[in-house]
Nucleic acid binder design. Sequence first.
DNA 1: CCCTCAACCGACCGATCGTGCTATTTTCTT
DNA 2: AAGAAAATAGCACGATCGGTCGGTTGAGGG
Lengths: 198, 198
Amino acid sequence: MILSKGEQTRQEIVERARALAGEVGLEGLSLGVLAAGMNLSKSGLFAHFRSKEALQIAVLQRAIDHFIQEVIVPALRQPRGEPRLRRLFDFHLAWIHGNARGGSCFFMALTHEYDDRPGPVRDLLVRSQRDWYDTIARAARAAVEEGHFRADLDLDQFAYEFVGIGMVFQQVAKLLEDPRAEARARAAFETLLDHSRP
Amino acid sequence: MILSKGEQTRQEIVERARALAGEVGLEGLSLGVLAAGMNLSKSGLFAHFRSKEALQIAVLQRAIDHFIQEVIVPALRQPRGEPRLRRLFDFHLAWIHGNARGGSCFFMALTHEYDDRPGPVRDLLVRSQRDWYDTIARAARAAVEEGHFRADLDLDQFAYEFVGIGMVFQQVAKLLEDPRAEARARAAFETLLDHSRP
DNA sequence: CCCTCAACCGACCGATCGTGCTATTTTCTT
DNA sequence: AAGAAAATAGCACGATCGGTCGGTTGAGGG
């Protein structure tokens, strides 16, 4: 056993908390409810993190890792340029849809939870979102280099509109429950791609 | 005095609660904090609404009314077609930016608060958002009729992308605090307009 | 195998939550 | 001005919150 008992329990807590936070937000996390869900006393759980904020940060970091593993890494296995961008978009939609099961996309929900609540949690969130925009912009630059996109394309603008499509998709799919949400997202993305080509 | 004392107090409560909810959400509203902020006892305040949910609904309805007054009505004063759509977009950005003072756009925040929390509050939110998409689509249809937009334009798709731009704008402006957020939003909107023209 | 220390528990704290119930004060009607 | 009705205050309730503390237990290295 490579993981100590404590570390193993800690990771189970974080994983469980991540699922719970998808439904109630990071602020809405309750140590009591969380402990009851596993076979743990509240204080036993609390001992693993010395504050609720530490738990929140651990959960957010875990979500970031998941996002990288489920969205970014698989897209990187595609050839540079447009194919990789398409996959990035696909996996992004899938991520939103997946987390859609009883909860919004983690990061979008947190955006509204923390855009006016300073602190380390917000800082980490901001950093992760900036990284996400950068990842998209870098993938777009690769597409430029491959000749798939025009040389004068505004990469940051591309990332901006890319993210925007994902955001409406989430609202239309999950709140408004419109089955055409995904088709609309893909149509919007095709338009964006067309507009980016030489 | 046309308003009874009770009704007047009630409206002051709702208005105050709307401001407070912009920072902490509808679920995060606290009757105690709210009452302390005005000169009212918690129970005195509570008596105006027979439940917290009733207060939440009143607050949401109030926000909807504000949105209509600040965004939709002034846009309707513009000539049909593209000018009206431009103003609709302008006022929409201004609304997001205005509510940005210590809080997100009310409706976007509520989207993530209630997309997995059924009940009357969510129902009202869904209705209001559907109305908003419809309003944009109707304005776009007018632009088609005026000959500003092509006849085969997908109106709902237009509304979809319209809203998406507003959503990224909010995140980039408020969470990421990027001063170019507004310019990017306008650039994206111009692209959308260009793509909609005959 | 045993001893040590990390891991965990149970009880408890003060605060705050939404919500009743019962006065008491204020407003409105006559 | 008086009486009915509405508005508000005071108080208490059960629940739940994040967090503390002293003790108990079980895992893991010697």
